Amino acid sequence: MRGTVEGVTDSAVLTTFEEHRPTLFGIAYRMLSSVADAEDIVQDAWLKWSAVDVEKIAQPRAYLARTVTNLSLNRLQSAAVQRESYVGPWLPEPLVTAPDAGGGVEQEETVSLAMLVVLETLSPLERAVFLLKEVFGFSYAEIGEMTDRSETAVRQVGSRARSHVRARRPRYDAPAETRRKATEEFLAACLGGDLNRMMELLAPDVTVWSDGGGKIRAALRPLHGADKVSRWILGIIERHLPEDLGVHPVDVNGRFGLLLTTAGVPDDVFTVELDENGLIAEVRLVRNPDKLRHVTVPEESHSDHAEPGAG
C-alpha cells in the first residue's frame, strides 16, 4: 500500500474503497458469474485505486464502477474462449451463504442463478450497460463515459438489452417459503427413492441442468420431462449415494437452496425454480468442484439425508 497522497491518508483511501466494495463485487460477479473472478477483479480495482490521486476524483463510485466494468469486460474475452470448450451444461458459480444471513447488493433478484443465466445470453457490452443502468442506477451519460461511447449509443444498447432480458427472465417468482418447502420435499422424495412423490412435485416439462464441467459425474446435456428427470436422479442416487452425505439448508444467490456434502466437503449446490402452480419447473445442480472451492459449510446444519426438512 502506498503512503499519503496529496494529504489523503491511506486510511481514508481504504475507507472510501471499502464503502463501495459491495457495489464493485456486485458488478463484477454479475458480469462474470464467478465468485473467484469477481474477487480478483475487485482486488485489481483496489490496486488501481490505491495508485491514483484520489483528491482529483470527483465521483469515486462512478470511477470505481468504470474500473471494475472495464476489467470485467477484458476478463470476459478469455472466459468466452474457455466456455467454448466447457464440458456439459454451464451454470454460474453460486454465491452460498448461511440461511437468512442477509448481505449487501449481491442478495437481490438480479443475482439469482436463473437471472445470471439470462445475462449470459447478452453480449458483454449489453450486459454491462444493463447492469449499470437497471441494477446500479447509473445514468446513460455516466455509462457512456465509463464505456467510451456516446450517450445515444449506450441508450440504444440498454434498450436492446432490456427487451432481451424482459423476454427471457423468469415469469414467476415463488414466495420464499413455498420455494423452501418444495425444495426440501423434493430432495426428501429423491433420497427416499419415492418416484411417485417426485413425479407429483415436478412440472411435466421440467428441465434439469447438471454442471460437472467434465470433472465429476453429471448429465452432459439438459434433461427434459418429469419421468426422465426423476429416473435419472434416482439412478444417480442408487449408484452413488454416500453414507456420509450431509444436507445443509443455505441461501444460494439470495434464495433458498441446499448444499450437499460428502464427508463434510461441498459436493453439490441444489436449487429449483417453481411454476405458477407451485410445481418444480427447473432444477439446477452445480457439481463442478472448481465452482465450489469458495463454499463454506454452515456450522449449524443438519445432515440427516433421509429427512432434509427435519431439524
Rank of each mutant, 00 (worst) to 15 (best):
53 D>P: 02
30 R>F: 02
29 Y>I: 01
54 V>I: 10
53 D>W: 07
35 V>P: 03
44 D>R: 15
40 D>R: 10
33 S>F: 08
54 V>P: 03
63 Y>G: 04
37 D>G: 05
53 D>Y: 10
37 D>N: 08
43 Q>D: 13
65 A>S: 15
59 Q>W: 08
28 A>Q: 06
60 P>V: 02
33 S>R: 10
33 S>Q: 13
30 R>N: 12
63 Y>K: 03
55 E>S: 14
33 S>E: 11
50 S>V: 06
64 L>R: 02
54 V>F: 03
53 D>S: 13
38 A>S: 05
63 Y>I: 03
35 V>H: 04
53 D>M: 09
57 I>N: 03
34 S>C: 01
30 R>L: 04
45 A>T: 05
54 V>H: 12
36 A>Y: 09
29 Y>N: 11
55 E>I: 07
40 D>A: 10
47 L>G: 11
31 M>T: 08
46 W>M: 12
28 A>P: 07
47 L>V: 13
31 M>F: 12
30 R>D: 03
30 R>M: 07
30 R>K: 13
31 M>Y: 12
44 D>C: 09
60 P>Q: 00
53 D>R: 13
36 A>P: 05
49 W>I: 03
40 D>H: 06
34 S>K: 01
29 Y>Q: 08
32 L>F: 03
48 K>I: 09
40 D>Y: 00
44 D>K: 15
35 V>G: 00
48 K>V: 14
57 I>D: 01
45 A>Q: 02
42 V>S: 05
56 K>I: 04
36 A>S: 15
61 R>H: 12
29 Y>E: 05
35 V>C: 02
52 V>T: 04
44 D>I: 09
58 A>M: 06
32 L>Y: 06
28 A>C: 10
36 A>K: 15
36 A>G: 08
34 S>I: 02
36 A>W: 09
33 S>I: 02
63 Y>P: 03
50 S>I: 04
28 A>L: 04
65 A>L: 10
51 A>Y: 03
45 A>P: 00
65 A>Y: 08
60 P>T: 05
56 K>M: 05
38 A>L: 07
54 V>L: 13
60 P>N: 06
59 Q>R: 15
54 V>R: 10
43 Q>A: 14
43 Q>M: 06
65 A>E: 09
61 R>A: 07
42 V>K: 01
61 R>F: 05
47 L>F: 14
48 K>S: 11
46 W>L: 15
64 L>M: 10
45 A>G: 04
42 V>L: 07
51 A>I: 00
43 Q>F: 09
47 L>H: 13
62 A>T: 08
55 E>M: 12
39 E>K: 12
51 A>F: 03
58 A>G: 02
57 I>Y: 02
44 D>Q: 15
65 A>P: 10
59 Q>C: 10
51 A>C: 01
32 L>S: 13
47 L>P: 02
52 V>I: 14
37 D>C: 01
33 S>W: 06
46 W>T: 12
31 M>G: 08
65 A>C: 14
